[in-house]
Design a protein around this nucleic acid. Sequence first.
DNA 1: AGCACA
Length: 235
Amino acid sequence: MMSADIPPNQTIYVNNLNERVKKEELKKSLYALFSQFGRIADIVALKTTKLRGQAWVVFDEITAASNALRQMQGFPFYDKPMRIQYGKSKSDAIAKVDGTYVPREKRKKQEEKAEKRRKEQHETHQAGNGPATSYGAAAASQSQFQQGKPSSQEPPAPPNNILFIQNLPHETTTMMLQMLFQQYPGFKEVRMIEAKPGIAFVEYGDEMQASVAMQALQGFKITPQNPMLITYAKK
DNA sequence: AGCACA
């Protein structure tokens, strides 16, 4: 079957996500995976019974959303193939930008006229801990040249099929890096060292393949504060 | 399966 008759939208709706993955990690991994298609304005994921296993990835551009939908359809993500459709409605992040945003409070008032008090059950709990919108600011110029801090005073190591990644946020997981690096041919494995947060090694079949991945992901930000610095590992 | 953003 095809992915329904929903018209293109800047937002893609992703489901069949692994429900064991924690919300914040899920968002970061989705961000890492999807920002290759264009700037991401927001990612929405809730863990309520109704909404777990699903997420909305909001792109600035419809074309980015379309490419993401086509190319990532069925992508194995945390051991489950992603199912992707266009979102059914406009995301708040977009409405806020194009001026059509109506705060949720007022919207309720309008609806109440039509459907009095049906489910006056409000379950307001769980104070979200992270700025869910930080991604918007983050994505400024992914995969562009961004002079990250070349904190190394050493001459660059010669080409190697193993890459050395620095300046990662401490919450980075092997899985998150795998999502990113496995997109490039020749990918073998990610290695992180428990005792040394913030760095990782990524192995490819040969030096050429490693260099392609390095160019593609140099400066990539998993979080706004952390452009990754990629060099060849020392032999 | 399940279409939200507080």
